[in-house]
């Protein structure tokens, strides 16, 4: 088990390295030049070829790409100093240095830390809600498979999940905050939980509900399907033939097996949520990782884009590892090696 974890972590680090390299190369050899956009911004759109050349030189775009990538990697471990132009100030970027935002001139790692709680709040709340709703509804539907209630539920949930999520979230927001002007939850946004838990909750609530309802339709489908399959297994028949009460058959013998595939999907979903939910953050005005990454792409803010991508990859690798560990706990036949 320990050796397995070490192996997975090592291979995860290799993946992160490859992700960072590919993003770096994408920008370096990409069609638009990052130096150009910085030059435009810094000179208020009066970027002359001479000025551009200065930016190129100081930002290192005139060096070979591998030298600059080396500098970047070196900075991650030891920190480095970053200068945008000859006469501007020197930014001291401490390890782990992911760079300085071209746009805001903030240390990227520090900014990520300040934005993390918002994204984490959205993800945790939304995921909890959709698991708590989706799995019990799915199990209940599986128990009543083929009945009118089951059919009505399946088709109505299918209808909801066929609406694009951004539209669904936008409509929810418009309806609740503009039309109905529901007190408490109308005021969306992120407020640190340490300052005011009540305000934190009320600011998040609408985002949670949107994510929760939408995710719940999917998780109902997954867990219903998985449960229906498990209920036709031989060992369920054995459990019934032993004379066990229905409750025990369904929850002790059925649910534990049915959860295995659901956990797999959840691992990936939750990773995606943590890496930033662009629509949710945009619509409900939450200053999280997703929104930050989106803006950085618009602004060709290389350090921020690569930081968010790396962060996303790291989260996915970690959540996959956690899923595998949960797997081995749920199913004794799975041995991590």
């Amino acid at each position: 088990m320990f050796a397995y974890l070490v192996k997975r972590v090592l291979s995860g680090i290799v993946v992160l390295f490859l992700v960072s390299l590919s993003i770096f190369l994408l920008f370096w050899f990409g069609p638009s030049e990052p130096a150009q956009s910085i030059c435009d911004r810094e000179t208020s759109n009066r970027c002359t070829p001479e000025r551009l050349e200065v930016f190129r030189e100081t930002l290192g775009f005139n060096n070979p790409w591998y030298q600059e990538y080396g500098t970047f990697i070196d900075g991650v471990f030891t920190g480095r100093e970053i200068k945008f132009s000859k006469n501007t100030k020197v930014y001291d970027c401490e390890a782990p240095c992911l760079g300085i935002s071209y746009r805001t001139k903030q240390d990227v790692f520090d900014e990520m830390k300040t934005r993390m709680p918002a994204t984490l709040s959205v993800a945790l709340g939304g995921a909890t809600l959709y698991l708590l709703l989706g799995i019990p509804i799915g199990v209940a539907a599986a128990k009543r498979r083929g009945t009118l209630a089951d059919k009505a539920l399946v088709s109505s949930f299918l209808a909801i999940s066929s609406i694009p999520y951004y539209l669904f979230a936008l409509l929810a927001w418009l309806f609740v905050t503009i039309n109905l002007q529901v007190p408490v939850i109308s005021d969306t946004g992120y407020f640190p939980i340490t300052d005011n838990p009540g305000k934190w909750a009320s600011g998040m609530l609408l985002a949670w509900i949107a994510l929760g309802i939408f995710g719940c339709t999917q998780y109902t489908r997954y867990s219903r399907g998985s449960m229906v399959e498990v209920l036709s297994e031989d060992y369920i028949r054995t459990a019934k033939a032993k004379g066990l009460p229905n409750r025990t058959v369904i929850y002790k013998h059925g649910l534990r097996s049915a959860l295995v595939p659901v956990v797999t999907i959840f691992g990936i979903d939750f990773g995606t949520l943590l890496a930033g939910t662009i629509f949710t953050e945009r619509i409900f005005d939450i200053e999280g990782i997703g929104l930050w990454g989106l803006e950085a792409v618009y602004q060709k803010d290389l350090p921020v884009v690569s930081a968010t991508a790396l962060f996303g990859a790291a989260i996915l690798i970690t959540s996959n590892l956690i899923v595998d560990v949960i797997y081995s706990v749920l199913d004794p036949r799975v041995r991590l090696s």
């Binding site: 031989d234 019934k240 749920l330 004794p332």
Partner: peptide, 19 residues
């Protein structure tokens, strides 16, 4: 079930709960 009448099945690997 399981008390007065018990039943055993063909494929014991599938009929016993793997977990």
């Amino acid at each position: 079930r399981g008390n007065e009448i018990a039943m055993i099945f063909q494929d014991a690997l599938a009929a016993l709960h793997p977990f």
